[in-house]
Amino acid sequence: MVTVLTEAGATEVVSAQATGDDLWFAKTDVTRATGWNLKPEGLCQGDLCVPVPKANSENFVREETVNIAGFWRLLGRPALHDQAGATWMLGASASDRANALQSLEAPDFKLPDLDGKLHSLSDYRGKRVFLTTWSSW
């Protein structure tokens, strides 16, 4: 079993098999763990699809399994893992972040307060928000 971390959180994937820098999933686990969907045209999220590279398709799709780490790197995104291959982080790319910022729409997030109650930035739509950071360190 492998723990897959994405921006949306952690998911346990029983079918996952890590081989070096590749992470193979049962096709049926892809959506639950990543929010992406495997379709005939490739790996898709909304209107965006990454086609399976024809030249070396066996590096990405084999029978009922998908190399999710391989696809992630095709998207230009980091796919990192611990030494044992038991925990993987599928991260965001620089262009994911840059595109979001350049749209000028403030990227939304959801975080807890001290009591654990969750707040989203978008809960405060309609107000001017001074979003600031601090730390104890």
Binding site: L104, E105, F109, L111, S122, G126, R128, T132, T133, S135
Partner: peptide, 29 residues
């Protein structure tokens, strides 16, 4: 809010504290 994973710094490309972003009523920076 408590941001243990430094998600806000990641989303807004911040490097230290205190930094700030001003966001208008329509959610625009």
């Amino acid at each position: 809010l408590i941001d243990r994973e430094h998600h806000v710094a990641d989303l807004y490309n911040m490097v230290n504290v205190p930094q700030a972003v001003w966001i208008d009523e329509h959610g625009r920076i």
